[in-house]
Every structure is written in C-alpha cells, then in structure tokens.
C-alpha cells in the first residue's frame, strides 16, 4: 500500500476526532468538563441527516447538524454554568439523552430503529476515489480546525479570556472578564465543533445509523488529555490515534495484533499521560468548578 493512501485513510478517520477534540479543548480550557463530546457528535450527525433529507442539500444538513450541537451544548451550558450542576453528571446524562432522542426521532421521521434512508452528502461513498474525498469541504475544515483553534486560544483576546477563566476565574473576574459569558461561548463553540465531527460522519456515509459515533467522542477526549489541553498537540494525538486504526485495518488480514488491542491504544496512552509516568498531563486549574 502506498504511503499516500495510508495518509489519506488516516486523515479520513482523523477528521471527526479533530473536530470533536477541538470542541473538547475549547470547553475544557474554559474550565467546563467535556464528557459531552460523544453526545454532541451524535446529535450533529442526526441533525445533518434530518436537514439533508428534507431539503436535499448537504450544506443545509451541515447547518442543521451544527444547530443540534448548539442545542445540546446550550443544555450543558445552562445546567453547568447558570445552575452550577455537576458537569460530569450532566455530561453523562446528555450522552444518554442524545442516544435516546436520536432513536426516538429516527423512529418518528424514518420509521426505523436502525438507520435513516440515503441522503445527499459530501464527497463520494466510503472507499471511493481520493478526488471525491478532496471535494468534501469538511475535510478541509477539519485539517485547519486545530491550527485555527490554537490561534484563537493563544493569540486573541477571547482566547486569553478563555484561558483565564479556565485557570483562575476569580482573578479573571477581578479584572472585569465576564467569566460566565466566556464559558457560555466556549461551551456553545464546543457543541458546534463537535457536531461538525458528527456531520462529517453522517454526510460521508450519506446516512445516519443508530449510535453511529461509537465512542469517537471519548477518543477525542482522550486526544485532548493526551495532548495536554493544547490544540496543536491534541490535533497530533488525533492523527496518532487515527494512524493506529489505519494500521490495524491494513494489517487485519495478517492478524498480527488483535484489533481489540489496537482499539485500546488511545485509552492506555491517556491513562499513562495523566498518571504522569512520562511528562505529566495536568488539566486547567479550574476545570469542573463553577464560581459565583
């Protein structure tokens, strides 16, 4: 297999991780725990298929997918920021809620418990030519999302505020930063970004299937943590995890390593990273805490 094909396949797998990890990095840098990425992605995927199905336009699907992500993120933000609910609990609940609500509306809209009909999407079908892959606008957005996020977080006033409310909200508040408003924007942004990961999945496969995100939101979260909450490092972690998966798919016939062990790689690396055996991964200081 050529190196180029390997890279293309890696990128194809990495795109949803890159979007979701960008969302996770943004919210967590602002101090809000992101166990919700999985739910945001799933909601985005379903929203995209609804929009694309009823209008026949993949672009409108993109918009409705992001709208679903924003809707779910708003629930997360209101509960966690306005009402100071436990962010971990709300995160777990939103994931559960999203699985249920997408299944409910899948039944209502398409009378199916497993998948939607085929809808208009971006690019060709899975496994089609590289040219079709490169015409998918979401691929290009996915490639630039992490560098762009890095620039926002490190080089803009908004990014400075995000970092401030994530590290020391009291200090930020004392110099006039509207802590809660910055966190709202960060969480909504994370909803939109993670939803794009789901939109990509659904529009690449031209349909929604039940629970189609299959734990990708948690791999993205692992990438954020493994990347020490830095967008560029998190982006590299996404590529690393995707490369491992690609290798696994290519080597499937050879049966060198059981697929389950390759699937464990992101999670094991993340545990090693937070345990600090090599270069400790430390979260933003105020992660998970709300203040008055």
């Amino acid at each position: 297999m050529s190196l180029l094909l390997f890279l293309a396949q890696t990128l194809r797998i990495a795109i949803p991780y890159l979007f979701a990890a960008a969302g996770g990095a943004l919210a967590e840098r602002a101090g809000v725990v992101s166990l919700t990425l999985e739910g945001f992605m799933l909601g985005g995927a379903f929203g995209a298929v609804l929009g694309s199905h009823y209008t026949g336009s993949a672009w409108i699907g993109l918009v409705t997918g992001v709208a679903w992500g924003l809707m779910l993120a708003l629930i997360h933000a209101v509960c966690s920021i306005r009402y100071k609910a436990d962010q971990i609990v709300v995160g777990v609940a939103i994931n559960l809620f999203t699985v249920g609500i997408t299944r409910f509306f899948l039944q209502l809209a398409f009378e199916s418990s497993s998948n939607s009909p085929r809808v208009a999407g971006f690019g060709g079908d899975a496994g089609s030519s590289a040219a079709a892959f490169l015409t998918n606008p979401l691929v290009w957005m996915g490639i630039v999302v992490m560098p762009a996020l890095w620039w926002v977080v490190q080089k803009t006033t908004f990014g400075l505020r995000v970092r401030a409310v994530g590290e020391h909200p009291q200090a930020a508040a004392s110099v006039g930063v509207p802590v809660n408003r910055v966190r709202y924007v960060a969480v909504l942004g994370s909803g939109a970004l993670a939803a794009l990961g789901g939109v990509y999945l659904a529009l690449d496969q031209h349909q929604f299937t039940d629970s189609m995100t299959a734990g990708r939101g948690f791999i993205a979260l692992a990438a954020v943590i493994f990347g020490r909450w830095d967008p560029l490092r998190a982006g590299l972690a996404c590529l690393l995890f995707a490369a491992a998966e690609t290798l696994q798919i290519q080597l499937q016939a050879a049966q060198l390593i059981p697929s389950q062990f390759v699937a464990m790689i992101p999670y094991v690396l993340t545990i090693v990273a937070v345990a600090g055996v090599v270069g400790r991964s430390t979260p933003p200081a105020a992660l998970g805490r709300t203040t008055d």
Binding site: C79, K84, L96, G100, I101, Q107
Partner: peptide, 23 residues
Amino acid sequence: VPKQIVEVLQGIVIIAVATSVPE
C-alpha cells in the same frame, strides 16, 4: 411509542436532579 422514550426520560431525570440540587 418507541421504547427509547425512556432513555430520553432517564437523561432528563439525571439532568433535572443534578441541576435542582444546588438550585
């Protein structure tokens, strides 16, 4: 109604309890 309605309700109950405790 689709049985998944209870998954939605479970999620809502969790969110509502988590939110109403501090409130």
